[in-house]
Design a protein around this nucleic acid. Structure first.
Length: 531
RNA sequence: AGGGGUGUCGCCAAGCGGUAAGGCAAUAGACUUUGACUCUAUCACUCAAAGGUUCAAAUCCUUUCACCCCUGCCA
């Protein structure tokens, strides 16, 4: 699978434009990484690995008002979890170099200090159909600009009172070229630099310099920065002698149907405590996916399959689900769990009866595991596996039907009992003699197979199933998590997971699960061929 | 006529002038003591539309249409 960026790299290597490639993933530490970031990380990292290059993690920490060390820590953790390995850099460590570059620009007459108000600058920028007008400050002398910029750095201006602007073209059809702001005054402590700096560079000025300092060769970002590329190039061309000139390339960011990846929305959910945190299993953050049972390798697989291109697109969530299913199908420990359990009582066996059966896991006709479990006259089954009024083609239990209990006997359903609300509380069955799994000479044909849990060794657990966190309008979905009581055979507790709860889905133990309060998260359901 | 992008199967996505890869989904069937897995088959005479160039066009040219991005001292 190749993409247009890889083609560029192959070509640059072939023509000798670069001997070694240097890529980077440059998050701003103002939130947690989500699956959209995984696409960018995996793009950069896998290309670096494939072509013998390197991929840095660089924190683009140029705006202290939104950033925090908590995020730095979390991002590093997530990068490691994904399997990334490389050097970590901070844009804030380059602030002095950037300041020197800004001064070079001023000396060349390519930048000036503007003391016009925020509103004034906004007005003079014009709009899409109107050219901008020059600021009165545009023709300040180099000396005056130098002095003013010095004053900005010394803290002689309040926030918003002065900015350093590039002198480019106020009539450019590209709004980004209408004398963009390079530096603003921000009297805010930086999470790494404290109050050392009073001015902070803006993305458009900082980013190309960061890339150049790290000798980045291919600077990949998302589509909305296409209009910034001319400015990226301008900064590098005008601000000094950079050893290498990186090139910016843009690709479409990830969208997945049913998943909202807006950092703002996600943060709001956390702040409003509608979710348990950034790692809530419903969150599309990497920590959320991990807690939900997704593996890093399944995310790699997913990113590989969706490709990288320039067209805005929305990937079907089924694609992601298929990736994790494919992996878990091979790794998950099969367990029978009765979800929303109903008691099944065997009428033709005594209370003292118990027998051992061989529970086998078969994948693609291969027995991959075998386990001894016990059955008695009282077991639990899924409520959904019994129906008083079965729909057409129902292959589960109904009155007078014959159903195989997985790995055990075929049973005949004699009757059922309801409580006063009409809810099934007990299903009564009789074992069909000589129908035991593996030694069945009964000649009876079961219409289906269901799983079960022996009452004597059952432990209570809670399973959590998930739906979209937000609806199309971005409103919190109160049914985004459904908690259901279930019964699980305690032998399963000796395994750490991942699990496949037979005929239901893949599950993992939740981070908050404890021996007294066992909680399992549904990573993804099994495909359901029932029509 | 502001500028910059993108339009190939329901959803992603290859394709780079020589006659439409692949994945997901779907459908049909086989297998099955998981309605899972696995297997087999089907699924774009057509590439946003219309013209044109060519022996040959999704690929080149022209025009049109649709959608996305840009008027932060955010990134």
């Amino acid at each position: 699978m190749s993409n247009f960026i890889e083609e560029i790299i192959i070509n640059d290597l072939k023509t000798g434009k670069y001997k070694n490639i240097v890529l980077r993933f440059p998050p701003e530490p103002n939130g947690y990484l989500h699956i959209g970031h995984a696409k960018a990380i995996l793009l950069n990292y896998s290309l670096a690995k494939k072509y013998n290059g390197i991929c840095n993690l660089r924190f683009d920490d140029t705006n202290p008002s939104t950033e925090d060390n908590e995020y730095v820590k979390a991002i590093v953790e997530d990068m490691k979890w994904l399997g990334w390995n490389g050097d970590i850099f901070f844009a804030s460590d380059y602030f002095d170099i950037m300041l020197q570059a800004a001064i070079r620009l001023i000396k060349k007459g390519k930048a000036y200090v503007d003391t016009t108000s925020y509103e004034g600058i906004k007005l003079m920028r014009g709009d899409l159909n109107t050219k901008g007008t020059d600021s009165a400050c545009r023709n300040f002398s180099v000396e005056k600009n130098l002095s003013l910029f010095q004053d900005m750095q010394l803290g002689k201006f309040e926030n918003g009172e002065a900015v350093l602007r590039a002198k480019i073209d106020m009539s450019s059809p590209n709004m980004n070229m209408r004398d963009p702001v390079l530096y603003r005054v921000l009297n805010i402590a930086h999470h790494r630099k404290g109050d050392k700096y009073k001015v902070y560079p803006l993305y458009d000025f900082a980013h190309p310099i960061e890339d150049a300092i790290e000798n980045v060769t291919h600077s990949c970002c998302s589509l909305e920065f296409e209009n910034h590329r001319p400015l990226y190039d301008w900064v590098l061309a005008e601000s000094g002698e950079w050893g290498s000139i990186p090139q910016q390339y843009e690709f479409a960011r990830l969208n997945i149907s049913g998943i909202n990846l807006s950092k703002r929305e996600l943060k709001k959910l956390v702040v409003d405590k509608l979710v348990s945190g950034w790692d809530d299993p419903r969150m599309p953050t990497l920590k959320g996916f991990r807690r939900r049972g997704y593996t890093a390798s399944s995310l790699w697989d997913f990113c590989d399959k969706i490709g990288v291109a320039k067209s805005n697109s929305i990937v079907d969530i089924k694609m992601l689900e298929s990736c994790i299913r494919d992996e878990l199908n091979l790794t998950a420990k099969r367990v029978m769990v009765a979800i929303d359990p109903v008691e099944l009582f065997i009428v033709n066996r005594s209370d003292k009866w118990k027998e051992t059966v061989n529970f086998e896991t078969v994948i693609n006709s291969q027995v991959v595991a075998s386990e001894k479990i016990e059955i008695s006259n009282k077991i639990f089954i899924d409520r959904a596996d019994f129906s008083i009024d079965p729909p057409p083609k129902y292959k589960r239990m109904q009155k007078n039907g014959n159903i195989r209990l997985k790995s055990a006997y075929i049973v005949h359903c004699e009757d059922y009992k309801l409580d006063k609300d009409g809810r099934v509380i007990q299903v009564l069955c009789s074992i069909i003699e000589n129908s035991k799994s593996g030694e069945d000479i009964s000649g009876v044909k079961a219409s289906g197979v269901i799983h079960w849990v022996n009452s004597q060794s059952a432990v209570d657990i809670i399973v959590q199933q998930f739906n979209n966190l937000l609806d199309e309008q971005g409103v919190f979905n109160k049914k985004s998590v459904i908690r259901i009581n279930a019964k699980m055979d305690k032998y399963a507790l000796t395994h750490s997971g991942p699990f496949q709860f037979l005929r239901n889905g893949f599950y993992c133990k939740d981070a908050c699960s404890s021996p007294k309060n066992l909680i399992f998260n549904q990573t993804v359901g099994l495909k359901d061929g029932y029509k």
